[in-house]
Amino acid sequence: MSNWSRRRLAVSGRTWLVLSLLLLLAGGGVWLWDDANLIRIATNFFLLCTLVVSLQVFVGNSGIVSFGHVAFFGVGAYTAALLTIPPNVKERALPMLPAILMNLETGLVTATLGGALVAFLVALLTGLALARMQEQAMAMATLALLVMMHAIFSNWETVTRGTIGLYGIPRGINLWVALSGIIIIIGLALLFKASPTGLHLQASREQPLAAQTIGINLVRVRLIGWLVSGALMGSAGALWAQNILAFGPDQFYFVETFTVLSMLVIGGLGSVSGAVVGAAVVTGVSEMLRDLEGGFTLGPLSIPELPGLVQLAVAVLIMIILIYRPEGLLGQREVGGKR
């Protein structure tokens, strides 16, 4: 319908360069420091960023909250697991698996693209109904998607091994692979944001009626945003699976949904850089509080286990940020851009 805006592309390109450079500096610094724990935290952080940035593609551009994206994350993770687990492990863990899947053993890139593809298909099936709904109804229906996929993950024993979960995924991720992953996904997210469809989606976020009057098809742009975001989320899940190596269905449920959404809100919904900043803030807070959660002693005072302390702190942080900075830390601004 319309052409690419060269100015938007230039702004997005600049943001991408600045963000990539910052992440590269962080990754390089950690690598030089050479502390195993720090490298683990940084790798997890980059993988988390891929999740939050993928979620931002839909939520940020459309302004519609999705509680269902963690389902795509799970779809990507399970797909990657099925594609990469060696056949001899599968024979023991999943004896009923169809022969085609049983004998597959692919590498990192294929598994990641496979995760994206399957997530894309799930997004297509659900999106056809979801994209037609009113904004608020769609937000609620995405929660139904989360529950539906969780029921499938926990009960489809031939493929997912039910609530026990899968194991034996070969490690395909190190610090540099995670860093490349996040840089690519940030690039794609920024590209979508600057694309005609991305701009139409943002217009529909600001003024749905006005957007329709200039000929924007709300259902179509929302569906495209949903598909792109779902596929990215699937690839992010695939990357994550190859770092965590063993997982179960409960890792794709309410707590994770809260975690990624809170990162997005804290950083600012409308900004890709905000997604990264939010992920950094929440990772920082969580790492600081995680040790306290297990209980600690303060002089003569012995504090017992504090279950859920991290979540509680993050929730309070969200409340404070919402009251003082309703748009999140960055609002709509991007790093390295004027807006």
């Binding site: 937000a139 809260f258 809170s262 859920g308 919402l322």
Partner: peptide
């Protein structure tokens, strides 16, 4: 969206207060 997240945060706060 802001109100939605605010209520989301309230839910998590209450849950975790009970947990503690």
């Amino acid at each position: 969206v802001t109100l939605l997240f605010s209520s989301f945060a309230v839910a998590v706060i209450i849950q975790n207060l009970i947990r503690q």
